[in-house]
């Protein structure tokens, strides 16, 4: 499947970049003329994925977060958020709603939110090597009365 348009970027896993990543992803999707709700879906899902990289993948320092996105036929936006951090030991457990390895101030809803606000998500992870989260979102846009 060939992208009609794409971008890639690398940024530090600093929490100040969470807002920046949301803005870039929603700005890229904006060319499909999405509804406000669809843009908010993308912002929220990307925010969750990037936050995971910052708090889980690189808990003791700053590493790279690689974000790439493509626009495909039928209004599909595919956003990939990848890190070279510690990886996830048990993906199934990590994706359980309300489970957080950090407890306390984290709600444990990151993956649940991503699943709820995207059409499809896939997670690949290797311990010690890193994690890649792919978010698929179909933009139906304003012309469909959304």
């Amino acid at each position: 499947m060939k992208a009609l348009n794409k971008f890639t970027m690398t940024m530090d896993s600093r929490s100040a970049n969470e807002g920046f990543a949301r803005l870039v992803a929603s700005g890229f999707a904006a060319q499909l003329d999405p509804t406000v709700e669809e843009l908010c879906d993308i912002k929220t899902a990307v925010s969750e994925a990037v936050t995971n990289c910052i708090v889980h993948a690189y808990p003791d320092g700053v590493g790279n977060i690689y974000i790439s996105a493509g626009i495909f036929e039928n209004g599909l936006v595919r956003i990939k958020i990848r890190d070279k951090g510690c990886g996830i030991a048990d993906i199934k457990k990590a994706m359980e709603p309300l489970y957080s390895s950090l407890g306390g101030e984290r709600a444990g809803l990151g993956f649940a939110v991503m699943e709820s606000f995207c059409d499809k998500i896939s997670v690949r992870s290797t311990q010690g090597k890193g994690t890649a989260v792919t978010l698929d979102k179909y933009i139906k846009g304003k012309e469909f009365g959304g």
């Binding site: 949301r22 908010c40 912002k43 929220t44 925010s47 969750e48 936050t51 306390g104 101030e105 984290r106 709600a107 444990g108 809803l109 990151g110 649940a112 939110v113």
Partner: peptide, 13 residues
């Protein structure tokens, strides 16, 4: 204007 699950964590805490 925007909130992700960190807002939920904030309320829970």
């Amino acid at each position: 204007s925007f909130m992700d699950s960190s807002g939920v964590g904030l309320v829970m805490g």
